[in-house]
């Protein structure tokens, strides 16, 4: 029995929404980073499912690019988090408010 594409899209939408909620409501930078990764990978599910449904392989090709981009983003993001932790000894975004006037 084949699972209809709608289920994949629904799963992807729910995961994406969870990621968005995580970014908006969590205050720990590391958790925000994880939520962003969740968003990207939720889209990956959509892309693969839609690629399968439409019979066009380019969706799956994009998934490979997304995975490498996510890796690069994680590397740069964690480097920035380490640099800011050295400065402020905190990973709470509420502590980073130098520009509030």
């Amino acid at each position: 029995m084949e699972i209809p594409v709608d289920w994949y899209l629904a799963l992807s939408a729910i995961l994406f929404l969870l990621g968005v909620i995580g970014v908006l409501f969590r205050r720990n930078v590391i958790i925000i980073l994880m939520s962003i990764e969740l968003m990207l990978n939720a889209v990956n599910i959509s892309l693969v499912a839609l690629s399968q449904a439409t019979g066009d392989v380019s969706g799956q090709i994009l998934v490979f690019f997304v995975m490498s981009v996510a890796a690069a983003e994680a590397a740069v993001g964690l480097a920035i988090v380490i640099a800011i932790f050295r400065n402020k000894l905190s990973v709470d975004v509420n502590d980073f408010n130098l520009f509030k006037h």
């Binding site: 968005v20 970014v23 925000i32 962003i36 889209v43 969706g59 981009v69 993001g77 800011i84």
Partner: peptide, 25 residues
């Protein structure tokens, strides 16, 4: 400023990518 740019930029990338997926679908 780098952290803010990164977090918000990566966040918007998520939306951008979802847009691509829906257009493709």
């Amino acid at each position: 400023s780098a952290l803010k740019y990164f977090l918000l930029g990566a966040f918007s990338t998520g939306f951008f990518l979802y847009g691509i997926a829906l257009l493709f679908g």
